[in-house]
Amino acid sequence: MSLPKFPKSQNSFSHELKERVHRYFEDNNIASTGNGHLYFKAIVLPLLYIFLYVHVVFFTPPTFWALAECALIGLTVAAIGFNIMHDGGHGSFSSKPWLNNIAFFSLNILGGSNFMWNMKHNVIHHAYTNIDGLDDDIDAKPFLRMATTQPKLKMHKYQHLYFWFLYSLLYLFWVFFTDFRKYFSHRVGSVPLKKMKTKDHLIFWASKIFFYGYIMVLPIIKFGLLTWLAGFLTMALTGGFVLSIVFQLAHTVQDATFPMPDETTHKMDDEWTVHQLKTTANFATNNKWICWYVGGLNFQVEHHLFPKISHIHYPAISKIVKQTCREFGISYIEYPKMVTAIASHVSYLRSVGQAH
């Protein structure tokens, strides 16, 4: 599939929006990167992860509490991904590149690959959001049909019922399968993988070996295969579901669109900024706990428009984005509560699963 081209702006919306957001930081004399609130989470969440791991593995609480702590480890994995890794990967964690690299490398400690994620998320997903054939985030074939342009199978009629279980498998697939598929196929979906340097290969394999060592080998030696499996699956399924649902609520909902380029010219109808607004949604932006836990990813609109700005600032700049959209008559998709967004996601999966 040829890469689509976005037309240049025919009005001043993009320019005006960028100017207003830039002015906000300039007038308030604040950096667009992370601040003390983010760095507090960057200390607390990894320490919580280490504490829970050490307590479960080396102090062995009773079975019920051990499984509860494993579930909490899964929630902590997701929180580290949302808050620390994600900002680090976008270079918005800190103004210092080495701190961004450390934050981004947390993904490797948790079983993923920052090289593969950068290609999949930064290079492809953010550039070609919701474009079938390019955006790997909406490619769950054959199990799920995420867009009407994808093949339809009989089982998709029920995908709004069984997706809950599939979403739980995300983390397992991520650390045991999808990274390796990208590595050996040299592709992310239909897009060729950027050439890996010797250093990239070494980091990829060393990270995987380290992760499997502390998350599999050590616990299996200590507790046995079945006991480890019970705890690991509790952790992985919990974390996988949370990671999946948060990202899916941002793009696969009823009000989001899935535009495709012209078959002949490969041009998109909308400029890139408007495309992001049409394909992205916010949810539960007034819920302070959700905002804290998901690292501002419930402000997905602001994140897609300004990925280089730390999520700490999304609540403030969302007011600017909303006002500018109103003035230019451009839609701004937002669901007031998380449950509302989930309902919209379920309805969307139902409609796509039944559509021809």
Rank of each mutant, 00 (worst) to 15 (best):
D27H: 11
D27G: 04
D27N: 13
N28A: 04
N29E: 08
S32P: 01
S32C: 01
S32V: 01
S32W: 01
T33E: 09
G34A: 03
L38K: 01
L38S: 08
L38P: 01
Y39A: 05
I43A: 12
V44N: 05
V44D: 10
L45T: 10
L47P: 10
L47M: 15
L48W: 08
Y49R: 05
F51P: 04
L52S: 09
V54G: 02
V54T: 09
H55T: 06
V56G: 02
V57H: 00
F58S: 05
F59S: 11
F59L: 15
F59M: 14
P61N: 02
P61E: 09
T63N: 03
T63K: 00
T63H: 07
F64D: 07
F64V: 14
W65L: 15
L67F: 07
A68V: 08
E69T: 00
L72R: 05
L72M: 14
I73T: 06
I73S: 04
I73M: 13
L75E: 03
L75S: 02
T76I: 05
V77P: 00
V77K: 03
V77R: 06
I80K: 05
G81D: 11
G81K: 10
F82Q: 12
F82E: 12
F82V: 11
I84K: 12
D87W: 12
G88D: 11
G89F: 03
G89H: 09
G89E: 10
F93P: 11
S94G: 08
S95I: 09
K96S: 12
K96Y: 13
K96M: 11
P97Y: 04
P97Q: 07
W98N: 12
W98K: 13
L99F: 14
L99K: 15
L99V: 11
N100D: 06
N100Q: 07
N101Y: 13
I102C: 10
I102L: 15
A103G: 06
A103W: 07
A103V: 01
A103N: 06
F104Q: 12
F105G: 02
F105E: 11
S106F: 14
L107F: 05
L107Q: 11
L110C: 03
S113G: 01
S113W: 05
S113N: 06
N114Q: 15
N114L: 13
F115C: 09
W117M: 02
W117C: 00
W117F: 01
W117G: 02
N118L: 12
M119E: 15
M119D: 14
K120R: 15
K120P: 07
H121T: 09
H121S: 10
H121M: 08
N122R: 01
N122G: 02
V123G: 03
V123C: 05
V123L: 07
I124S: 06
I124D: 09
I124E: 11
H125E: 01
H125V: 00
H126D: 04
H126A: 01
A127Y: 00
Y128I: 09
Y128N: 06
Y128V: 02
T129C: 09
T129Q: 00
T129P: 03
N130K: 08
I131A: 07
D132W: 10
D132V: 09
G133H: 12
G133S: 14
G133A: 14
D135Y: 09
D136V: 13
D136R: 04
D137R: 13
D137E: 13
D137T: 12
D139T: 15
D139K: 15
K141R: 06
K141M: 07
